[in-house]
Deep mutational scan, measured.
Amino acid sequence: HNLTITQGKLFFHYNPKLCLSEIHKMEEVSGTKGRQERNDIALKTNGDQASCENELLKFSYIRTSFDKILLRWEPYWPPDFRDLLGFMLFYKEAPYQNVTEFDGQDACGSNSWTVVDIDPPLRSNDPKSQNHPGWLMRGLKPWTQYAIFVKTLVTFSDERRTYGAKSDIIYVQTDATNPSVPLDPISVSNSSSQIILKWKPPSDPNGNITHYLVFWERQAEDSELFELDYCLKGLKLPSRTWSPPFESEDSQKHNQSEYEDSAGECCSCPKTDSQILKELEESSFRKTFEDYLHNVVFVPRKTSSGTGAEDPRPSRKRRSLGDVGNVTVAVPTVAAFPNTSSTSVPTSPEEHRPFEKVVNKESLVISGLRHFTGYRIELQACNQDTPEERCSVAAYVSARTMPEAKADDIVGPVTHEIFENNVVHLMWQEPKEPNGLIVLYEVSYRRYGDEELHLCVSRKHFALERGCRLRGLSPGNYSVRIRATSLAGNGSWTEPTYFYVTDYLDVPSNIA
């Protein structure tokens, strides 16, 4: 807008934040220059609390790290170098490059900038070799853009010569660093050979998330399962459950009422301010606690030095998902009996873990797994792929695949051998790939016309006998059925096997 004052003059007093240069501009645009008398524009009460600059400061050096910015700028000295009290560095987070010096300023003089007072450097006698002032900004957020400017702080001049310097606002972004852990990993099994893994992005990506790394490792069953005799009275049979499938998407929606109208769909109840505040506090606490764990609990591995020492970490090797089922080394339970199943799973520490690289999504279907087997899954978020990966501390989750139908069934015939004193040795093959492992066998036998009897055969007993022995049988026709019990439950009964026990007292003698 054009402003013209045809008559009258300007009068400025007691404006401590208004620089004289701005008042002189007002004289020019209003056409009143030359009308004012000496005392109409006070030299001592206008701009006496402001830094009124008329020179431009330029930054000469900028260096960044993930949490620091090192700045240096060209030296500046007023005509009387004693008038320079120091520099004021202003900075704040700036997602967009549209910041002005006066953003967030209120009537009390406060604003949204963080201000650092910096002492002037030592003055050199040689004007050509003056030290460049600077400042190291610490405690910054990774991968965050900051708006920065600097200006001088000078003393009051009796001659009211307006001098000083100020830089333009520059924008500097800190470097990326390792992201925080992925949030809320959930693993479920939808079949006997697959596990579905879902997660949420890290709360602090500290860069642009480029991919996720998912490692999985087959877990050995508890050692007590191999040692305890679950045929003993009072000892509860062990059981394991597989990871249940995901709930429906509708039930997972946030901010939804727990109660549904019987007449149909209901609208979600909005969260109160107290609920939102509580969630923010919980989120802040979780982030602080995660940072504490990362800094205190997890110790970084030592990389190899120039002395030739090897990095103890196993090298990563990509495998196809079809090879995942046989990740671990199978060892027989008892070496003397080769027909026992290889369900003991000690994992070799030198073995390469299978892994998958996930790009542009937060889910993965891990296939080719062994049925009813526990897996430990390790999830890392990465925001750099080359020249070397920059990934987060791992988040861990466990899951067990679903049982395989008929995996616990005894394959092959049940054979028998009759000894003296009416002892019958029953023999059968253990299931080759049971659900988890076989903890015991149930032997059901009966003599024709009598009630059915049951015998429990422990895992250890089966390994020693290759089956079991029935003792003290009365003469007669017998039928026997056997079924295995694994961590997933009972298998199917075998087809009945028949044998006849004679009275050993009636056996004919070869003595003449």
Rank of each mutant, 00 (worst) to 15 (best):
S203R: 10
E221D: 06
E389G: 04
P354K: 06
P349Y: 13
V501T: 05
F499N: 00
V214G: 04
C269F: 14
Y292C: 01
K460C: 06
Y230E: 06
S367V: 11
I366H: 01
S257T: 06
T347N: 04
A381F: 01
T288D: 11
V327H: 10
Y292W: 09
D273Y: 06
S486T: 10
D385L: 07
S492F: 11
T272M: 11
F215W: 01
G234H: 08
T485W: 09
L364M: 12
P431M: 01
C267K: 08
E417Y: 02
S274P: 09
K432F: 09
A335W: 05
G322R: 07
T502D: 06
H461D: 12
V393R: 15
A336R: 14
Y259A: 12
S243P: 11
E282D: 15
A335K: 11
I438R: 01
L453T: 09
Y230K: 14
A330S: 15
T307H: 11
E265F: 08
P349K: 14
Y504V: 11
P403I: 13
P205T: 04
K317C: 07
Q256L: 13
N477M: 05
M402C: 15
V299S: 06
A220R: 07
T340N: 11
P508W: 02
V359I: 13
P245C: 10
G436E: 03
P403H: 03
H425G: 08
K287A: 05
W216I: 09
V397K: 12
Y478R: 00
T415G: 05
S248V: 07
S492C: 05
Q252M: 03
R319H: 13
K236G: 11
K432A: 11
D229Q: 08
Y441M: 01
G436V: 13
E282N: 02
R319K: 12
R301F: 02
R469P: 03
V414Y: 01
G449S: 13
D506S: 13
T485D: 11
H416M: 09
T347C: 06
Y478W: 11
E351L: 15
Q256H: 10
Y500H: 11
S342M: 06
T288A: 09
G472E: 09
E249W: 08
S398F: 03
S239I: 05
T303C: 05
E465I: 07
E217V: 05
S284R: 07
D506W: 11
F499Q: 01
S367G: 09
C267R: 00
Y441N: 01
S251V: 11
R481A: 10
L379G: 00
Q429E: 15
T241F: 15
Q384R: 07
Y292E: 05
A488F: 08
Q380R: 08
F462Y: 03
T415M: 13
C269I: 13
Y448E: 02
S315C: 11
E258W: 14
M402Y: 15
G476L: 00
E389T: 09
K236I: 06
I410M: 03
T343I: 07
R318C: 12
Y478E: 00
S283G: 10
V457Y: 07
S248A: 11
R466Q: 06
S239P: 08
N360T: 12
R301V: 09
D250E: 12
V397F: 14
L487I: 05
V329F: 04
S492N: 02
Y396W: 06
N422V: 03
A263K: 02
N255M: 13
K432I: 07
Y448W: 03
G472D: 11
V296P: 11
E433Q: 07
T373H: 09
G264A: 15
F372C: 12
A309H: 14
E417A: 14
G306P: 15
S342L: 15
C468S: 03
K361C: 09
L364P: 00
K233V: 15
L280T: 15
K361R: 04
E351A: 10
T485K: 06
D273G: 06
C468I: 07
F226C: 09
Y375I: 07
N421H: 06
F285M: 15
L426M: 14
R447H: 05
S342T: 15
T272L: 09
T415K: 15
V414S: 01
P244Y: 12
V331Q: 14
T272K: 02
V297C: 04
V393G: 03
Q429G: 15
V439D: 05
E282M: 04
S320N: 10
C269D: 05
R319W: 06
E350I: 05
I366S: 01
T303W: 12
V359D: 01
I482K: 01
A220V: 07
Y292V: 10
V297R: 11
E281Q: 10
N206T: 03
D229N: 14
A399Y: 06
D291P: 07
Y230M: 05
L228I: 13
G325S: 14
S458Y: 08
S479I: 06
H425A: 14
I482L: 08
L379C: 09
Y498M: 10
S458R: 07
K302D: 15
R240G: 14
P205D: 15
G467V: 04
D323I: 13
T497W: 09
Q252A: 10
R353P: 15
S239N: 08
G264L: 14
A394P: 07
G472T: 06
F462I: 03
E442W: 11
K287Q: 10
Q219C: 05
H425M: 09
D311P: 05
P332R: 05
R319S: 11
M402K: 15
E281N: 07
F289D: 15
P245A: 06
I366K: 03
K302T: 12
D291C: 07
I438W: 03
I209S: 07
L379M: 07
F337N: 15
N421T: 09
G234Y: 05
A394I: 15
N360Q: 08
K460I: 06
S342I: 03
G322M: 15
P434G: 06
D204P: 03
E258T: 13
T307F: 10
E227D: 07
L379Y: 05
Y504P: 05
G436L: 10
T347I: 12
V457N: 02
K432E: 13
A336S: 12
E227Q: 08
L505I: 10
D385G: 09
D409W: 06
K317N: 09
P238N: 10
L379P: 01
E221M: 15
S251R: 10
D506P: 15
K302P: 11
S479D: 02
L321W: 10
K432D: 14
T373V: 13
R301E: 05
V443K: 00
K233P: 15
N339R: 12
R370M: 13
F372I: 02
E452Y: 15
S474R: 05
A336F: 10
F246C: 08
V358R: 09
T288S: 06
D229G: 10
V501H: 03
L473P: 02
A399R: 08
F226V: 08
W216K: 10
E221R: 12
A263C: 09
L470N: 01
S342C: 02
E221S: 14
C468M: 12
P431L: 02
K361P: 08
E351P: 10
V411S: 15
G308E: 08
P312V: 15
N383T: 06
N360P: 10
N339H: 09
I410T: 03
E442H: 07
T343G: 11
L453I: 01
N422R: 13
Y212T: 14
E282A: 10
L487N: 06
G467L: 03
D250L: 14
I209C: 14
A335L: 14
K361N: 10
Y500L: 11
Q275A: 12
P338E: 08
S315Y: 09
S363A: 13
V345D: 12
Q256C: 08
K317H: 14
L379F: 05
E265W: 13
H416L: 08
K236E: 11
R481P: 00
I511F: 11
H294M: 15
S251E: 13
F337G: 14
G325A: 10
A220Q: 14
G306Y: 10
S203W: 05
A394Q: 11
Q256D: 10
Y396E: 03
N435S: 04
A336L: 12
S398E: 04
A336P: 11
R218Q: 14
S274K: 06
V358F: 06
V214F: 09
V365K: 02
E495V: 05
I276P: 05
D291S: 06
N326L: 15
S274A: 04
P332Y: 05
I377M: 09
A399N: 03
T347F: 06
Y498K: 12
H461Q: 10
V334H: 13
E356H: 09
I482Y: 01
